[in-house]
Structures are given as C-alpha cells and as structure tokens.
Write a protein that binds this DNA or RNA. Structure first.
Length: 424
RNA sequence: CGGGCCGUAGUAUACCGGUAGUACACCUGCUUUGGGAGCAGGUUGACCGAGUUCGAUUCUCGGCGGCCCGACCA
C-alpha cells in the first residue's frame, strides 16, 4: 500500500485556490483541478500533480492495485527509456507505424524511445523468466507514466502527452487459460469502476479487435466530455463502439439497432487479446509437457489513471467546485476552525484533529488565519466529503457542525458521534 | 497534420501609433471576523525577432506558445 501521512494542516499546504480559471483552459476538469490546486499545467497536455492531486491519484491507484492483486497480478515498474532494436522486431519503431513516438539519442551513441507502451519491452523481458509450461501463467502490471507525442493534446488531464496508466500484461499457456483470465479481468475492471463511483455509467463495449480477435473490449463511461460515441443497451448492459456497429455484430450479440441508445462516452479502460503473434515476433516461447516449443499467449489490459481522475473531477462537481466520492477524496474530513484568536476554539480543533487522526480518519485542518467566507468557499471548491466546523457557536452547543459536501445536509455531532459515524 | 481563434502584472480583463488602466492576488497599517470584508498606502506587466514609422504594446511578416473544430488514438 502507498504510504502517506494521514492528515495535514492547511497552513502547511503550499498550494492556493484561485477564484478564476486560466482563460485558455476550457475543459472543466482542468479548470476545477487548477483552481483548487490539485494540478499545475507545465505545458499543453502535461500536468504536475500537487499534494491534493497526488493524494487523489494515489487513492485511485490503491483501488486499482487491490483489484489487480486480487486476480493474481504482480506489480512491477518498467523503464521509460526503451531500446530501438526491440521495437524493430515487431516493426513498430517506424514513425509511419507508430505516430506518437518521442525519440532521443544517447550521448554514448544509439537511439532510444520514450515509453508510449510497454508491450514489446515486457514481452522481451519475460524471455528471461519463461522457459517451461511450469512458469506460466504470469500476470504483471504497473503504474507508469506514458509519453505520447500527440498532435493535439486536449480535454485537460484527460488526453495528455504525459499521463499515468495502469497497464497489465498476461502470459498464458494458450487460449483457454487466456480467456479465463481475460474474463476475470473484465470483472475486476467492473469492480474498479464501481468503487470509483462510475459503475452505473460504465459499459463493457465491443470495439475493433485488431489482428487476432474480432473484438477488443473497451470500458466506456457516459460523459459529456467524452471523445467517443457508443451504442448501449442498458437492459443487457452491453455496448458497441460505432467502429464495429454493423449487422454482423448485431446478429452476433443478439440485438437489433432499435434496442440501442447513442451516448457520448470517455474510454476509461481497454483490454486486448494478442494471441501468439507478439510472442512469436519477440521470440517468447515455452516448452510444453511434450518438449515442444510453443509461443506464449499474451494479453494487455489498460486503465488510464489520470484520465479517470479527470473524468471523476468532471462528473463529481457542482457550481461551487469539486465533490469527490468518499474513497477518492484527498481527505475524508475538512476541519474548519473559525476564529483562530479564540484559544478555546483552537484547542478544541486541535483535540478533534488529534482524535480523528487516532481513529485513522484523514483530515485537512484549515487552521489558516482567514475569514469564514474564504474558508467555506475553499472547502466547497476542494470538495472534501465532510466539512466539520469548530467555532464559538459549536463550542457553546457542545457539538460540531457537520456538513456533507454532496448534499449540503448539516447535522450536529459530538466527537464520539462523529468518530462513530466516520468509522462505521 | 488541415482549419479557426488568441498571446497585456501571479490571475482575469481594458485602452491606445506618442511608454499602459481596473479587479483579485501580494506587501504595510488600522478596522473587521459564520459565506471569497472595508479604508489608506505600496510592489508587479505588453511572448521573441525582423520590418514599416520621427516614434510600435498597438500595423505587417516570421518564430514560439496556448485553446477550439477536424483527423488521429493500432
């Protein structure tokens, strides 16, 4: 699990909120995330993740990590610099074939590529570890920064030139094993999207498959900012990408065109069956029980971590700012202390902060010496699920004022009631 | 890569062929203190290069950068 501090004082946070978004930032996710201090734009399509943004990114990764581990994934990190020769083996070094390459040269001589995918390097690496049928299956995954020289970056953090992706690769004995794992991954992905709060809007989508299978599967989430158009059947919970929408597909899936609803979506995941072609190109073989040389059956499985974050930012927001789901929010509680010059209020806030920490509740404590209105506006913008106010009023009442960001619902709770509520 | 729009303080916006004004932010002081406070004072700016011109932030060209539409996303 990611190690991070549980809580922090807002006076310690170096980022600031902004009243206005940069004028040339049109996408909603970038506007909100920049205004609230989650990300910093370095250049078009390239964003830095600041303390709040990194916490959110890590929460998303944690959920994905748990689900990948649960189906047998082993986490690794591959390299960002990649060998030219490797990609020449599969004829994908050429800019004509792959048009998103960033390439550079070693001072010592030789050309290297900057990682836009890891299919080839990981297949090559596995030659070191796979030689017998006893070595398979292998499922590995990583969270890695991908670099893609897109002609046009757009949509804030949803389509950048540098972005974080979870990519998993499966290495199986043959089609049967592969299919079993492939289907397990579909279930795992659906659990991920459920836990991210977008399960109801996310559809497994039939898309063009490439050289080895008729279809690949995309995971598409209904979203206004989406770049894709898909056709969904809510009842059967299936969807078809427009690129494969034809009579043949419809017949195969047992539906007709009138059963389908056209929606705009964002692709949040994509999984592929490579068959044995890539292993053959790379020379990744194993010996079966009979001593025969057999190519490994490969698959790849991606989730765009930062794209999902952008999508969540857009989907969970209102006119005041971000409204993070509980398991994604950078903190669980935003503790607002009003009237810092009141010694009793301050010590009460300190005590609450201490007790919440002890109860393992992540808190952002707004201990700044600014006016109430500014604290409330910032809290709304930052979008932490529960706002807890400590002030002279709450001190007199003997209970804290607790307001849910999503609903605006306010209740008054004692420390023990609050902790009970949060740890229930 | 094709097409379009744009580039003025940290941010957002004005005006202007004669060296730039406002708001927020920031700094100082006083007042204020439950929904982005008030007053007073202060700091900060024309993307780069060339051309036209007596003079260019303003006009022209080029570069660089940003956003949008399309294409692309194997």
């Amino acid at each position: 699990m990611t190690i991070r501090t549980h809580s922090m004082k807002q006076s310690h946070l170096f980022t600031k909120t902004r009243r206005e978004a940069p004028k040339d930032e049109v996408s909603k996710n970038a506007q909100l995330l920049i205004r609230a201090g989650y990300v910093h734009k370095e250049m078009a399509g390239v964003y830095a993740y600041l303390p709040l943004g990194l916490r959110v990114q890590n929460k998303i990764k944690d959920i994905v990590r748990e689900e990948m581990d649960a189906i047998g994934g082993e986490e690794i990190i591959m390299t960002s610099l990649q060998r030219k020769e490797l990609w020449e083996k599969t004829n994908r070094w050429d800019d004509e074939t792959v048009d998103v390459w960033f390439k550079t040269e070693l001072k010592a001589g030789g050309e290297v590529g900057l990682a836009w995918s890891h299919e080839e390097p990981i297949g090559e690496m596995m030659k070191n570890y796979v030689s017998s049928f006893r070595d398979l299956p292998i499922f590995v995954y990583q969270f890695q920064t991908k670099l893609r020289n897109e002609l046009r970056a757009k949509s804030g953090i949803m389509r950048g030139r540098e972005f974080v992706m979870k990519d998993m690769y499966s290495f199986c004995l043959g089609e049967e094993d592969h299919t079993r794992f492939y289907n397990k991954t579909i279930d795992a992905y659906l659990r991920v999207y459920d836990r991210l709060g977008i399960g109801a809007d996310t559809f497994v989508t039939f898309a063009s498959g490439g050289a080895f299978t008729q279809f690949s599967h995309e995971f598409q989430t209904i979203a206004e900012t989406g770049e894709d158009v898909i056709y969904i059947n809510r009842e059967k919970k299936i969807a078809i990408n427009e690129e494969v929408l034809n009579e043949e597909t419809l017949t195969k899936l047992g539906i007709t065109r009138v059963d389908l609803e056209e929606v705009k979506t964002a692709e949040v995941g994509n999984i592929f069956n490579f068959g044995t072609q890539k292993a053959e190109d790379l020379g990744l073989f194993y010996k079966n029980e009979k001593g025969e040389q057999v190519p490994v059956w490969m698959g790849s499985y991606g989730i765009g971590i930062t794209r999902v974050m952008g999508l969540l930012a857009e989907k969970f927001a209102d006119e005041k700012g971000l409204v993070w789901p509980e398991h994604i929010a950078p903190f669980r509680v935003h503790l607002i202390e009003l009237g810092n010059d009141n010694v009793d209020v301050h010590s009460e806030a300190q005590e609450l902060y201490r007790e919440l920490n002890e109860a393992k509740v992540e808190v952002l404590w707004d201990d700044r010496d600014v006016r109430a209105g500014e604290k409330f506006a910032d809290a709304d913008l930052i979008g932490i699920p529960l706002r807890v106010v400590v002030s002279e009023k709450t001190l007199a009442a003997g209970k804290f004022e607790c307001t849910e960001r999503a609903t605006g619902h306010t209740s008054h709770k004692s420390i023990s009631e609050l902790i009970g509520h949060l740890t229930a």
